[in-house]
Design a binder for these strands. Structure first.
Lengths: 201, 201
DNA sequence: CCTACCGATCGGTAGG
DNA sequence: CCTACCGATCGGTAGG
């Protein structure tokens, strides 16, 4: 008379697991080779599927890109909000926020935000608008901290411009930083915060 | 008995013009859509040629990418050396160098260095080695200035790391800056230098 | 999620 | 530099 409930649950979980696995390998491949440099067959192979199977989970390749970026933004936003909620003087909060962002783009398996940062131009215009709405909340959190720092006299210049410059310095690290090298992420965060702050020597 | 010299010269010039035109439109397209997102047919059409004709000037599509990057580096290196040769205190030289780099990546038609910056992963390993050798000279010039600034006490932190952070902030501008907007390149350069320098308020 | 397949487009080439 | 073309690969689909 009806489909057994016991069976429906595990299947839903498996489907969800396969979907997550697809996003994980896609993020990694997109980061390494770019969206246009990665084929559906690359993704299928990395996920242990056959070439047509990703389309059971996503309607188009572009939809995979959007899902990767949205998942990255969701996690990045959560971590950023966590730091912003701490009761700390703004100078210390800057170091922490920079460290968090470095982790978000550089730690093992964190390929989602880098895809957003480095493959933006592969988004269709409609999807760009969709993603930018969430990205704006991300930027607004950073802007709050920078406004605080400026009020405390720790940072001269146009407020928005300063945000773009600082986030640029941090996000650019994705192009040169290698895990296990001479510099720890803590060291990078400390030196970066010190470089941006005035009157802290 | 022999090919007339008068005729050989103009032909060589035309060929050279077409080659330059190919590089110009390729740089623009690569910047907008990425190397993998740009087809030989896109390039041919933009240059007013038929689809097979670029291969008369370049052996492969990858060779076009390399040529774009090398031309960008040559010009960028020349402009950077010019600024470094000026007799100025290092703080003022920083503003000038930042302004020059901003022009190199943001002014009309300057698509060559952005391709180097944003399409690095599309290079084969062999070509990466080839390009990095020239890029190292570029970085070394910046490092000289930063070492000067550190000796003068204007900039704390690990010297190489500071160079990467500053160049990151500047190069990232390619992803957000729009010509004709609220901020002039001069203003961006001034605020950037002020953000990085200590004891200059 | 697999099988078998499609039409479109890709980088590149031979011959002139 | 054009003409005419090639084999390979692409994103995506129908049917199960």
């Amino acid at each position: 008379m009806s489909v057994p409930q016991r069976k429906a649950r595990p299947r839903r979980n498996n489907e969800s697991n396969r979907r997550e696995e697809l996003l994980r390998v896609s993020a990694k491949l997109f980061r390494e080779k770019g969206f246009d440099g990665t084929s559906i067959r690359d993704i299928s192979a990395a996920a242990g599927m056959h070439s047509g199977s990703p389309f059971y989970h996503f309607k188009t390749k572009q939809d995979i890109l959007v899902a990767v970026m949205e998942q990255g933004l969701a996690e990045g936003l959560r971590k950023t909000e966590e730091v912003m909620a701490l009761s700390l003087p703004p100078e210390q909060k800057l170091t922490k926020l920079v460290r968090t962002q470095l982790g978000t783009i550089l730690e093992e398996g964190n390929d989602f935000i880098p895809v957003l940062l480095y493959d933006w131009r592969s988004l269709t215009l409609a999807n760009r608008r969709r993603i930018v709405a969430v990205k704006d909340r991300y930027d607004a959190l950073w802007q709050c901290l920078i406004d605080d720092l400026q009020r405390a006299g720790h940072m001269p210049g146009d407020a928005q411009l300063v945000r773009l410059l600082i986030l640029g310095a941090v996000n650019w690290a994705g192009t040169w930083y290698r895990l296990g090298g001479r510099l720890s992420l803590d060291k990078v965060a400390e030196d970066a915060a010190r470089l941006f702050l005035q009157g802290k020597q």
